[in-house]
Design a protein around this nucleic acid. Structure first.
Lengths: 326, 326
DNA sequence: GTGGCGGATGGGAGCGCTCCCACCGGGGGC
DNA sequence: GCCCCCGGTGGGAGCGCTCCCATCCGCCAC
């Protein structure tokens, strides 16, 4: 290729990498040769010597069906994709269902397979972030892990959002509020519980009078939770579910019991996922800026990869969106 | 590393690549050295010489927001991910919004950046498949393109599915059926129109008496289409929408006009996306095996990459799912 | 005992690139 | 007019691996 352009390999390389120390004539000659030969530099050879790969990996610690079944991940990926499209980096997508998967991915990534890693949905006791960091691979976590303390975390204001949701219900005069909580081994689930309690206690009510039933973010768990509640003779006038899907399940159970939403029972969800628009009535919820979170994660990673300092924890705001269900 | 194990580089390489021509003693020595040193082979160096990358790329010819907003892609990705997880290949995700993007991706992939490519949502006049094939990169397309004829295509039985949907409505005694069609520059949209006409004509009705209004698969387009229909004094007793989202929009418009589903107007969608369960009443639809399609695409690509012969066109069955809306 | 054969092994060559050093030549300072 | 400096250039070295050839050794047949 360099020979075709009539220059040395060094000069050709300098043109391809945008170095300034090249004369216009040589630059033009190389450009022409590249076009004529349809030359594409070999990435493997390049990364062998530069020790970079121009690839960033996204690791989701969930099996594939959860990843792709959940609009939350779709939105985050969208934000990440947006930012990465403006950078020279390619996205490598990985999901780890089992701990064996995780080992495989760890080995894969600790080598020079990615210049940076984005971690999503970290479970308790997942040491992937730490392993990668000690190997010198920059990392950004989405969602604060419960146990470990990674170098760089992006999260949303789960607690404040949950607080505003319950405050909203209290303002509407509801006093028999049931909380369908999320999984308590995830910080998002725990924080949303704390936020709901904040509002409750802030209104001068006793924390133990807040009705709390467990859920796992899935629609089924929301339905079961409310059904059980009703069958035990409890009769809430409002339900705050820690996810939209659980709220949908809750509404289903309420309807099955002959209760009207919002007349008999107000319902509020969390996420502002697309499903909110398809419920009847449309669901009041707490919007979390998921796409924005993806963008911020990508931004922070890009900064870290060039050695920039970034805040250890970034928290994005949440916002109550009032619709017809409350 | 080889020195640490007390063997030659050749022998070490043989062990790492699972060659049989190695003595148990040497094999054990290498294994031990690998463990002790935490050695991970350098992929860049390996692929420089093997000219393989152990990476499969997925190219979606849509901007990122459409990719991740649409459960269809999520499901396909899930199927692909499932299969690839069982193989040594990593998934590289790429979306091309603009034609400049497409050129960039083409250049990226025609080099040794991926051993095989999966193409999704190919638009008319997209020559990416052809370009890749001539460069020797095996390719599998999801969804039959309208203009080009790639070497390997996986599609679903759109025509037969649409036919069964309209037959179902006819069996229910509906005779004033309106079709909200999909985009006619995509084969799926066109095929679904043909299938609907098949059923209509098959019942001895005149093809021109089938009410057809255009849509683009989006919820908004379905709502607009039905609203226009009603405002023009048309009064169908059934609506078959070529996508679930359009069916949801159609139901919204029908409700706004004071019409009951299914009493006054039966509604059938296409896709069997999760949204079907969240409508009131639940939506009758044509299920397309999207996850399966992803799996099949991955399977075929894996076969092609080892030089296996595969059918040029694979068509997966669709199936009518009757729910409450019809 | 000798020749031959084949399984196991060591290491040279080279993949395509970037880094870096040596070199070349022209313009300005003394 | 000489030297120095610096922008621009060419090419050697080497990144870490696999491929392949030459070699070695032990065993069997004659």
């Amino acid at each position: 290729m360099a020979r075709a352009a009539g220059v040395g390999r060094g000069t050709a390389s300098r043109v391809l990498n945008g170095s300034v120390q090249v004369s216009p004539a040589a630059r033009a000659a190389v450009r022409r040769a590249v076009d004529e030969l349809g030359y594409v530099p070999n990435r493997a050879a390049r990364s062998l010597v530069t020790r970079r790969t121009d690839t960033v990996a996204l690791v989701v610690s969930e099996p594939g069906d959860r990843l792709f079944g959940d609009p939350y991940f779709a939105a985050i990926l969208r934000g990440i994709g947006e930012r990465l499209a403006e950078s020279p980096y390619q996205l490598l997508l990985t999901m780890t269902a089992t701990s064996r998967d995780r080992d495989r991915v760890a080995a894969y990534l600790t080598d020079q397979h990615a210049d940076g890693v984005l971690l999503l949905s970290l479970h308790a006791h997942d040491d992937l972030a730490a392993r990668l960091e000690t190997r010198g691979v920059p990392t950004v976590c989405g969602g604060r892990p419960t146990t470990s303390h990674p170098a760089c975390v992006v999260d949303v204001a789960n607690r404040a959002g949950a607080r505003s949701a319950v405050e909203h219900l209290l303002e509407r005069g509801r006093r028999r509020i049931a909380l369908v909580a999320g999984p308590q081994d995830m910080s998002s689930g725990h924080d949303r519980l704390l936020g709901a309690q904040d509002a409750w206690v802030g209104a001068g009510l006793h924390v133990e009078h807040l009705l709390v039933v467990p859920g796992d973010y899935s629609e089924a768990s929301g339905e079961v939770a409310v059904r059980e509640l009703l069958s035990h003779g409890q009769r809430p006038d409002a339900v705050f579910a820690a996810s939209d899907l659980m709220a949908v399940g809750a509404m289903r159970a309420l309807r099955a019991a002959g209760l009207q939403v919002p007349e008999d029972v107000a319902v509020v969800g969390f996420d502002d996922s697309p499903v909110c628009r398809h419920t009847e009535p449309e669901l009041t919820t707490v919007r979390q800026p998921v796409v924005e979170m993806g963008r911020v994660m990508a931004d922070l990673l890009l900064m870290r990869m060039v050695g920039g300092d970034v805040p250890a924890e970034t928290v994005l705001p949440t916002q109550l969106v009032v619709r017809a269900s409350s």
